[in-house]
Protein backbone atom coordinates (compact mmCIF):
# COMPACT_ATOMS: atom_id res chain seq x y z
CA UNK A 1 0.00 0.00 0.00
CA UNK A 2 1.28 3.50 -0.71
CA UNK A 3 2.64 5.52 2.11
CA UNK A 4 0.41 8.24 3.47
CA UNK A 5 1.70 11.70 2.67
CA UNK A 6 2.25 14.09 5.48
CA UNK A 7 0.19 17.25 5.43
CA UNK A 8 3.27 19.47 5.35
CA UNK A 9 6.59 19.28 3.61
CA UNK A 10 9.70 18.82 5.74
CA UNK A 11 11.55 22.06 6.52
CA UNK A 12 14.79 21.04 4.83
CA UNK A 13 13.34 21.51 1.33
CA UNK A 14 12.89 25.24 1.91
CA UNK A 15 15.30 27.26 -0.22
CA UNK A 16 18.28 28.32 1.87
CA UNK A 17 18.18 25.33 4.20
CA UNK A 18 21.63 24.25 5.27
CA UNK A 19 22.51 20.66 4.44
CA UNK A 20 25.52 18.82 5.85
CA UNK A 21 27.21 16.36 3.52
CA UNK A 22 28.88 13.22 4.81
CA UNK A 23 32.33 14.86 4.73
CA UNK A 24 31.06 17.72 6.89
CA UNK A 25 30.73 20.28 4.09
CA UNK A 26 27.71 22.58 4.37
CA UNK A 27 25.65 23.48 1.31
CA UNK A 28 22.33 25.13 0.65
CA UNK A 29 19.65 22.72 -0.49
CA UNK A 30 19.30 24.52 -3.84
CA UNK A 31 23.05 24.16 -4.50
CA UNK A 32 23.19 20.38 -4.13
CA UNK A 33 24.45 18.40 -7.10
CA UNK A 34 24.26 14.74 -8.02
CA UNK A 35 27.92 14.32 -7.01
CA UNK A 36 27.17 15.52 -3.47
CA UNK A 37 24.75 12.65 -2.91
CA UNK A 38 27.00 10.08 -4.56
CA UNK A 39 30.08 11.13 -2.59
CA UNK A 40 28.15 11.25 0.68
CA UNK A 41 26.79 7.77 0.13
CA UNK A 42 30.30 6.47 -0.59
CA UNK A 43 31.38 7.61 2.87
CA UNK A 44 28.35 6.08 4.54
CA UNK A 45 28.72 2.67 6.11
CA UNK A 46 24.98 1.98 6.15
CA UNK A 47 23.40 3.71 3.17
CA UNK A 48 23.85 3.38 -0.56
CA UNK A 49 22.37 5.31 -3.45
CA UNK A 50 19.98 3.48 -5.71
CA UNK A 51 18.45 4.59 -8.97
CA UNK A 52 14.68 4.82 -8.84
CA UNK A 53 13.01 5.22 -12.22
CA UNK A 54 9.58 6.83 -12.32
CA UNK A 55 7.27 4.24 -13.91
CA UNK A 56 3.86 5.83 -13.33
CA UNK A 57 2.37 8.95 -11.84
CA UNK A 58 -1.28 8.58 -10.87
CA UNK A 59 -3.68 10.92 -9.18
CA UNK A 60 -4.60 10.12 -5.61
CA UNK A 61 -7.86 10.26 -3.71
CA UNK A 62 -6.01 12.48 -1.25
CA UNK A 63 -6.31 16.12 -2.35
CA UNK A 64 -3.11 17.60 -3.76
CA UNK A 65 -1.37 14.23 -3.69
CA UNK A 66 -0.11 11.82 -6.32
CA UNK A 67 0.91 8.18 -6.26
CA UNK A 68 4.31 7.64 -7.85
CA UNK A 69 5.44 4.16 -8.81
CA UNK A 70 9.20 3.67 -8.89
CA UNK A 71 11.33 0.84 -10.19
CA UNK A 72 14.16 0.65 -7.66
CA UNK A 73 17.68 -0.61 -8.12
CA UNK A 74 19.08 -3.34 -10.30
CA UNK A 75 16.30 -5.72 -9.26
CA UNK A 76 13.70 -3.21 -10.43
CA UNK A 77 11.66 -3.63 -7.26
CA UNK A 78 8.32 -1.85 -7.58
CA UNK A 79 7.74 0.73 -4.88
CA UNK A 80 4.79 3.12 -4.62
CA UNK A 81 4.83 6.33 -2.63
CA UNK A 82 2.01 8.79 -2.11
CA UNK A 83 3.29 12.33 -1.82
CA UNK A 84 2.05 15.86 -2.15
CA UNK A 85 2.32 17.19 -5.69
CA UNK A 86 4.96 19.71 -4.59
CA UNK A 87 7.24 17.11 -2.94
CA UNK A 88 10.68 17.40 -4.57
CA UNK A 89 12.78 14.47 -5.71
CA UNK A 90 16.37 14.74 -6.89
CA UNK A 91 16.77 13.51 -10.47
CA UNK A 92 20.20 12.31 -11.59
CA UNK A 93 21.95 14.96 -13.61
CA UNK A 94 18.95 17.29 -13.47
CA UNK A 95 18.37 18.27 -9.85
CA UNK A 96 15.18 18.95 -7.90
CA UNK A 97 12.00 17.93 -9.67
CA UNK A 98 8.40 17.64 -8.58
CA UNK A 99 5.03 16.79 -10.09
CA UNK A 100 4.00 20.42 -9.72
CA UNK A 101 7.12 22.60 -9.94
CA UNK A 102 5.14 25.84 -9.81
CA UNK A 103 3.66 24.86 -6.47
CA UNK A 104 7.06 23.76 -5.13
CA UNK A 105 8.52 27.11 -6.06
CA UNK A 106 5.54 28.89 -4.55
CA UNK A 107 5.68 27.03 -1.24
CA UNK A 108 9.41 26.42 -0.82
CA UNK A 109 11.06 28.93 -3.17
CA UNK A 110 12.96 25.91 -4.49
CA UNK A 111 13.41 25.87 -8.25
CA UNK A 112 12.19 22.60 -9.68
CA UNK A 113 11.86 20.83 -13.00
CA UNK A 114 8.79 18.79 -13.88
CA UNK A 115 9.01 15.19 -12.66
CA UNK A 116 8.05 12.86 -15.52
CA UNK A 117 7.79 9.16 -16.26
CA UNK A 118 11.28 7.88 -17.11
CA UNK A 119 13.11 10.25 -14.80
CA UNK A 120 15.73 8.54 -12.65
CA UNK A 121 15.63 9.74 -9.05
CA UNK A 122 18.18 9.36 -6.31
CA UNK A 123 16.97 7.11 -3.51
CA UNK A 124 18.54 5.29 -0.62
CA UNK A 125 18.68 1.69 0.46
CA UNK A 126 20.54 -0.06 3.21
CA UNK A 127 23.87 -1.58 2.31
CA UNK A 128 23.72 -5.33 2.75
CA UNK A 129 25.11 -6.42 6.06
CA UNK A 130 28.07 -8.73 5.93
Amino acid sequence: APLTPSSALPPYFMKGSIIQLADGELKRVEDLRTEDFLQSAEVSTELKIDSSTVERIDSSRTPDAVIIQFSVGEHKAQVCVEVLVEYPFFVFGQGWSSCCPDRTTQLLALSCAKLSVGDVCISLTLKSLR
Binding site: Y12, I19, D50, V72, G73, A77, V79
Partner: peptide
Protein backbone atom coordinates in the same frame (compact mmCIF):
# COMPACT_ATOMS: atom_id res chain seq x y z
CA UNK B 1 20.13 41.51 24.44
CA UNK B 2 19.20 39.35 21.51
CA UNK B 3 20.32 35.77 21.65
CA UNK B 4 21.73 34.52 18.37
CA UNK B 5 19.47 32.02 16.68
CA UNK B 6 21.07 28.76 15.79
CA UNK B 7 20.56 27.83 12.14
CA UNK B 8 19.31 24.28 11.76
CA UNK B 9 21.59 21.97 9.82
CA UNK B 10 20.04 18.92 8.20
CA UNK B 11 21.90 15.74 7.23
CA UNK B 12 22.12 15.05 3.49
CA UNK B 13 20.28 11.74 3.74
CA UNK B 14 17.14 13.35 5.11
CA UNK B 15 16.57 14.80 1.62
CA UNK B 16 16.53 11.46 -0.12
CA UNK B 17 13.51 9.17 0.03
CA UNK B 18 14.27 5.81 1.52
CA UNK B 19 12.93 3.34 -1.01
CA UNK B 20 13.79 -0.08 0.25
CA UNK B 21 13.38 -2.73 -2.44
CA UNK B 22 10.69 -5.26 -1.65
CA UNK B 23 12.88 -8.12 -2.82
CA UNK B 24 16.18 -9.12 -1.27
CA UNK B 25 19.17 -10.48 -3.16
Amino acid sequence: NVEPRSVPVFPWHSLVPFLAPTQSD
